[in-house]
Simulated scan of single mutants.
Amino acid sequence: MADQQLPKIFSPHRRIAARRRMLHAQQQVDAPRYLLDDMLEDVLERLAFVRHQPARALLIGDTGAFLGDALTAQGIQVVQEEPALGFDEQLPFPSGGYDLIVSLSTLDTVNDLPGALIHMRNALAPGGLAIASFCGAGSLPALRAAMLAGDGERPAARVHPMVDVRAGAQLLQRAGFADPVADSRHLDVGFRSLKRAIDDFRAQGVSNVLSDPGPPLGKAAYARAAEAFRAAGRDGRTVERFEILTLSGWRR
Rank of each mutant, 00 (worst) to 15 (best):
L148I: 11
H186K: 03
L140S: 01
H160K: 09
S133A: 11
S184P: 00
Q173N: 13
A178Q: 15
I131E: 00
A182C: 08
A142V: 09
L129Q: 07
V110K: 03
C135F: 05
G168K: 10
A137C: 05
D151W: 07
G190Y: 00
A167M: 12
H160Y: 11
Q170N: 12
P114F: 05
V181R: 14
G138F: 00
V159T: 14
D99H: 13
H119Q: 15
P161R: 08
D99G: 15
T109A: 12
Q173S: 11
P161M: 02
A197M: 15
R144P: 00
S103G: 15
L104T: 08
F191H: 09
G128S: 09
A156W: 11
L143N: 11
P155V: 02
R185G: 10
V181W: 13
L100P: 06
A145K: 13
P161K: 07
D151C: 07
A137I: 00
G136I: 03
L104D: 01
F134N: 04
M147Y: 15
L104I: 11
P126C: 03
G150V: 10
D188F: 03
G96Y: 05
P155F: 06
A169V: 02
L129A: 04
R174Y: 14
G176A: 07
D151M: 08
L172Y: 06
G96H: 10
L187G: 00
L172D: 03
R154K: 13
R196V: 05
R144Q: 14
S184I: 05
R154Y: 10
V110P: 06
R121N: 10
R144W: 00
S193M: 01
S95M: 01
P94N: 04
Q170D: 14
G127R: 09
M120G: 12
G128W: 09
R174V: 06
S105P: 00
L194P: 02
S193A: 03
V189R: 11
T109R: 14
D188L: 06
L187S: 01
M120D: 02
L117A: 09
D151S: 07
G138M: 03
V163W: 03
D188E: 13
L143I: 15
S133Q: 14
H119R: 13
A137G: 04
F134I: 04
V163L: 07
D164F: 03
A145V: 03
L148R: 14
